[in-house]
Write a protein that binds this DNA or RNA. Structure first.
Length: 598
RNA sequence: GGUUCCGUAGCUCAGCUGGAUAGAGCAACAGCCUUCUAAGCUGUGGGUCCCAGGUUCGAAUCCUGGCGGAAUCACCA
């Protein structure tokens, strides 16, 4: 469906040429939706043309308005107000739009184009800590972004990069070896990621104690004390053994990581996120090493006296960056260089998006510049979706102060709140236990997901665990409820056998609420494109809220099935049906399910 | 200190590729269920859009400089 806005813009261009003898670039034509409190569908801002037309804004607007009305059959009328030119399209135009959009399978979305796929990396957990609220934002953003990109017409692959190697992993392993007595998730009835996380905490606690003692006996500073503590030495030894593929160490590493993955899987499943491929740093860092050494050979990088390898980025306004340690072992960025290459080889993507917190902005700058030094063809394909931190009322989450909001706990809370609220409202008679549980899950997760996704990704956001997430107003359940309401109407229409009957547009007199709804529905495809371009699920969230609000206003003022005029009733049914479809499609892009009843 | 991001109603957030009188939700107060689901709808109050300059016919939006907050500047990840 070609957009009417594009047609108007072309006609405005012609009008200016014919009426005023001036050429104008289409990009300088500001055509926007007319404000709701003013009559009209589209508004042309004419102020910028006044220099060319040498006439007053009002006169210019009047002339262009007359020209367009004459040359475009879709335009019914226009009015000039304070130098703004407001067009109203023909009734028939909107009726046709409603009918056509209703027939589409997935109105608003575009079938994915395989030619230049997009790879979205998100989640990227460490295997020594359970997932918390910060990871939830990451996972929801990543999953939603991938859905949006796919809906906007890009084949999209979701990938995860698991940080499963390094000194931190050795810490939990060491603690478990020393004090675990062979404890397993089965023996302790703990989730695997929680169990391993507990040993990490145990290690850190013991290390702090040792370091404190050293500070007193040897007068070390904090850093020296930590580095010289026997536990730290042992952890390093373990890392050396791991890198040397010591069979015993490797076996424990595999076992413990296996526990963590099973724990993560259950959290991911509950969150409703998934991946097309999982990369492991324990694999990708080898590729990274190789590329860095190749770069060294080609003089893209340089070696210092101690044998360490560096990238000199001082000409790019950055600093020197270590890529390989003197002993040949790799650092964080080494594996990212390798991962980028592997990903490029796997998918040949037009875009590689990294959903990673803004605390790593500098890292991604360095990564891009380093890849540029290597003259990698995919350098410019990298995009960092840098999102803000989730803060608590007391500030950042700190594991030491026990203020970390655990992902599983939070989902439990949401479920309980959803159950309590739903049971109090008492609308679920006739639901089976299974249906009830599913509904509580859908509503609880809907509230949580919407709460997080409605905020602009790049901004820090505040989460107050004391004031539990609302179910009224600008929330997920409000939108879910609107969907359920519409579905209820449609079920009744199906019982009456009128659900698919068409209406006669000529006999429909449209009211303002209906008009607002149609206009909002019309905007949907553009919103999807904007959200994809801006990498912002918040645009979808805010759009679908507006749409739901508009429907509720319409629903309050007018009846669909009890409307005596059958033709108007059928029209409203179509309008409601399309609204429910758009709500479902949009919510799907946010990873939020919508219930048939609630 | 350098760099990047943020600063809009009591609180949480929209609006930011410049356009008409700056919007929602929550909280407060006042209404609306014999009619398709009241998790809804309607109304009232609530603002130096951090400050100061600049660009422009027009600035919450763009530029410069302050102020305030966050992140980062590792041989951690």
């Amino acid at each position: 469906m070609s957009k009417i806005e594009d047609k108007i813009v072309i006609q405005v261009q012609k009008a200016i040429t014919e009426l005023f003898g001036q050429e104008i670039d289409s990009s300088s034509i500001a055509l926007q939706n007319t404000r709701k409190d003013i009559e009209g569908d589209f508004t042309l801002v004419v102020f910028s043309f006044v220099k060319l037309t040498k006439k007053s804004p009002e006169e210019t607007a009047q002339l262009i308005g007359e020209y367009l009305k004459k040359h475009m059959k879709e335009i019914d009328s226009f009015q000039v107000l304070k130098g703004f030119l407001n067009f109203t399209l023909h009734h028939q135009y909107w009726m046709t739009f409603l009918q056509k959009a209703s027939e589409e399978n997935n109105y608003g979305t575009t079938l994915p184009d395989e030619s230049e796929p997009v790879v979205v990396e998100y989640s990227s957990p460490n295997t020594n800590k359970p997932l918390h609220l910060g990871h939830i934002r990451n996972n929801l953003l990543g999953y939603s972004l991938a859905q949006i990109l796919e809906a906007s017409g890009k084949k999209t692959y979701k990938v995860n990069l698991v940080n499963d190697r390094g000194i931190h992993i050795c810490k939990s392993m060491l603690a478990w070896m020393k004090w675990g007595n062979g404890e397993t998730p089965e023996s302790s009835k703990k989730k695997g990621d929680k169990l391993v996380g507990d040993y990490y905490v145990l290690f850190e606690t013991a290390l702090r104690k040792e370091a404190q003692a050293l500070k007193e006996t040897h007068n070390y500073d904090d850093e020296n004390a930590r580095n010289n503590a026997p536990l730290m030495q042992e952890a390093r030894e373990l890392l050396r053994k791991w890198e040397a593929r010591d069979p015993d160490v490797f076996k424990i590493w595999k076992t413990m990581n296996g526990w963590v993955y099973r724990g993560f899987d259950s959290t991911y499943q509950r969150l409703g996120v998934s991946f097309d491929k999982i990369y492991y740093e324990s694999d990708t860092y080898l590729m990274g090493k190789k590329i860095v050494l190749d770069g060294l050979e080609k003089s893209a990088f340089f070696k210092k006296e101690d044998g360490s390898v560096w990238a000199d980025l001082t000409n790019e306004g950055l600093d020197e960056k270590l890529l390989l340690r003197a002993d040949g072992t790799s650092v964080y960025i080494t594996q990212d260089i390798g991962t980028a290459q592997l990903r490029f080889d796997d998918y040949n993507p037009g875009k590689m998006i990294y959903v990673v917190g803004n605390e790593q902005n500098y890292h991604f700058e360095v990564l891009k510049k380093a890849l540029k030094k290597l003259e990698k063809p995919y350098t410019d394909h990298l995009h960092h979706l840098s999102y803000g931190m989730v803060e608590l009322p007391q500030g950042k989450m700190k594991s030491r102060e026990g203020t970390v909001v655990d992902a599983d706990d939070l989902m439990d809370e949401m479920y309980k709140t959803a159950r309590k609220t739903t049971e109090e409202l008492g609308k679920i008679e006739g639901f089976s236990e299974e249906e009830k549980e599913n509904l509580f899950h859908i509503i609880g997760m809907g509230a949580l997901k919407y709460f997080i996704l409605k905020v602009d990704p790049k901004k820090n956001m505040l989460f107050n665990p004391e004031e539990s997430i609302d179910f009224n107003g600008n929330t997920g359940p409000f939108i879910q409820y609107t969907h359920a309401r519409i579905r209820s109407i449609i079920r009744k229409a199906e019982e009456k056998g009128i659900a698919d009957k068409n209406f006669d547009p000529l006999k429909v007199v449209i009211n303002i609420k209906e008009k607002n709804l149609i206009r909002s529905l019309y905007n949907f495809p553009q919103i999807v494109q904007d959200a994809a371009a801006d990498m912002s699920p918040a645009l979808i969230a805010n759009y679908v809220y507006e749409l739901a609000k508009e429907f509720n206003q319409f629903y309050h003022d007018y009846s669909v099935l009890n409307e005596p005029d059958e033709n108007i009733s059928l029209f409203r049914l179509k309008l409601s049906g399309l609204t429910s479809k758009v709500i479902k499609t949009a919510m799907d892009m946010l990873g939020i399910e919508v219930p048939e009843r609630m």
